[in-house]
Simulated scan of single mutants.
Amino acid sequence: MTTVDWTALKREARRQDTSPERRLELAHFAPDLAREVARAQNTPPDVLATLAQHPDLRVRLALASNPRTPPTLLAAFCRSSDMELLVAVAGNKSTPPSQLETLAQHRNARIQGQLASNLSTPLDVLTIIAPRSGNLTIQGLKILVEYGDNASCANLDKTVPDLIKGMALSELIPAGAARRLLDHPSPEIRQILHRHVDKVATSVRAQIKQHLMQEGAHS
């Protein structure tokens, strides 16, 4: 009786030099091997697509988590009623932004958490889920606090996207951050500050509003 070396076969399923044909052969041999093929980030997208209807949920979950999975397939998974698949797709950096926005409508905490940690989640989607995610709100406030002129060690290297994200996600724009944002050379920063001016700390809000209005009058 021949003994199957499963460890060697799994290793082969993940190897860079394994041909697409061999990967398909391994995937059809056993569900555990199909899962290895589905999760390997060097598996060609067309091979991944052939596993979309695999009966084993673990294989489909591996596909949903793999950034090499074709966006059209990830979009199809977003229409699934299986919560585990939705959670996996929400954390995949290759999931199309439109699908991430759709997922943001779900109230499931695990989906929200995956969206919050997905570096590809657009700012407008983060803004949708921020009120339901304390972590995002804290993250936004942290960006602004570190940027403020009254911070113990102000971080002056925040990028424009960082600062926009901070203003969008935080429920409060601290006075120190508002003063520095007002002097930022990027017109986009001041536009976003104007949009979120009602979040500015009350101690400087009137001053910031007046300055922005004067700036608008002279632009």
Rank of each mutant, 00 (worst) to 15 (best):
T2I: 14
T3D: 08
V4P: 00
W6G: 07
L9V: 04
A13I: 02
E21K: 13
E21Q: 13
R22T: 07
E25D: 15
L26P: 06
A27K: 10
F29W: 06
P31H: 03
P31C: 07
E36G: 09
T43A: 11
P45K: 13
L51W: 01
H54R: 06
D56H: 14
L57G: 11
L61T: 05
A64L: 07
T72P: 00
L74S: 04
A76M: 12
F77L: 04
D82E: 14
E84K: 15
E84W: 10
E84H: 10
A88M: 05
V89I: 06
A90P: 05
G91E: 02
G91S: 07
S98K: 08
Q99P: 00
T102H: 08
Q112Y: 00
Q114P: 01
L115C: 05
A116F: 06
T121W: 03
V125F: 04
I138W: 07
K142W: 07
K142V: 08
V145Q: 14
D157E: 14
G166L: 00
A168P: 01
P174A: 13
A175L: 05
R179P: 02
H196M: 13
H196Y: 15
D198C: 02
T202C: 11
V204L: 11
K209E: 14
Q210A: 15
H211T: 15
L212F: 12
Q214M: 14
Q214F: 08
